[in-house]
């Protein structure tokens, strides 16, 4: 492969020596593949964190958006890249947790095909309902769901989206079977929630917080152990009396399998430094993000997280019959 490249270089009229430049990593810009379109929540986290990591590493981290198939297109490509530390990726709950259940023909194994770098940020999930919903807290909501069953309409942002996956999980926890209404993205779903067309949904805090604060929709609970500073008045699921529903859409950096431990350590160090930086923290917190504590930032704990997420999502999604193929 390399020979061919050299031959072609020579063909261009340049004398090829073929020697790769030697020296400490990184020698050139690093590509971080974001498996979603520019501007989405994962892209935002990647750009905020990547910005600070570039400064630590002394080489730019270039974000490459390779969107498609719920993020699996980009992750597949990144997993097959040279494990030289120059291609890394920002995965999330879907690509490294739910994907094996959603995509039976997935070309990678989240637990085996990656060298985890570290957890970047989590976005808590909030349970929201239309303004006119005939209940004012989670308990009243659950009672209403029991009484009305399929009459209730739940909105989600399309099969495979975070709001869809967490919605299925939520329904399985509260044993509800509402009528599911799909939207293309969170925006249109929220619009119909605000117009009282659909009844409730679950989604990432960054998407719903403005509407909750603006009084256009109501929030029943936030699916984290602690309340979010972005929504201090919204109780946690546990406080509201619901056990077993704690979810956050996490984002984490990975390298392809086989990347040398030294390089991973260097990248992890840059990531940790970014998460300790005041400016970066503020930007993430402003989005309602949760910044992982020290113990959660190591590659090892990320590996454990991926394993536990795959184990958690697979039965939930399989039981709901949700596949994207």
């Amino acid at each position: 492969m390399k020979k061919l490249a050299i031959a072609l270089a020579a063909g261009l009229g340049l004398a090829a020596t073929g020697a790769q430049a030697q020296g400490a990593y990184p020698q050139r810009p690093i590509t971080m593949i974001v498996p979603f379109a520019a501007g989405g929540p994962t892209d935002v986290v990647a750009r905020i964190v990547g910005d600070h990591m570039s400064r630590t590493l002394g080489q730019q981290i270039v974000i490459e958006n390779v969107a498609g198939a719920g993020g699996t297109t980009g992750i597949t490509r990144a997993a097959q890249a040279q494990p030289d530390g120059y291609t890394i990726m920002m995965g999330h709950m879907g690509t490294h947790g739910a994907a094996p259940a959603l995509y039976p023909n997935l070309k990678y194994d989240p637990t085996k095909d990656f060298a985890p770098i570290g957890l970047a940020a989590g976005t808590p999930i909030v349970i929201v309902a239309k303004k006119d919903f005939p209940a004012n807290d989670l308990k009243g909501f659950l009672d209403y769901m029991k009484a009305n069953g399929e009459k209730v309409n739940m909105a989600h942002a399309g099969v495979g989206s975070v709001s869809h996956m967490t919605g299925i999980f939520f329904n399985s926890v509260i044993k509800a079977k509402p009528t599911m209404v799909a939207y293309r993205g969170t925006g249109p779903a929220l619009n119909d929630l605000m117009a009282n067309t659909v009844d409730y949904m679950t989604d990432q805090i960054v998407n719903v917080a403005p509407q909750i604060l603006g009084g256009n929709i109501k929030a029943f609970a936030i699916a984290t152990p602690e309340r979010s500073p972005a929504l201090p008045n919204v109780p946690t699921t546990k406080e509201a009396g619901l056990d077993g529903f704690e979810v956050s859409a996490w984002n984490a950096a990975f390298a392809p399998k086989g990347t040398s431990p030294e390089i991973v350590a260097k990248l992890n160090d840059a990531l940790v430094k970014a998460l300790d930086d005041e400016g970066t923290r503020k930007r993430l917190l402003d989005l309602g993000g949760v910044i992982p504590v020290k113990a959660e930032r190591t590659p090892e704990s990320l590996q454990k997280l991926v394993e536990s997420e795959v184990a958690r999502w697979t039965p939930v999604l399989k039981a709901a019959g949700a596949t994207a193929e």
């Binding site: 490249a5 270089a9 340049l14 090829a16 790769q20 430049a21 020296g23 810009p29 590509t31 270039v62």
Partner: peptide, 22 residues
């Protein structure tokens, strides 16, 4: 514009002095 579009083969870097950036 700094777009992540590949510009030249990596083997090409070997032809230039080591200190040169992309």
């Amino acid at each position: 514009l700094n777009l992540p579009i590949p510009v030249f083969p990596q083997a090409l870097t070997g032809l230039f002095p080591a200190g040169w950036s992309q």
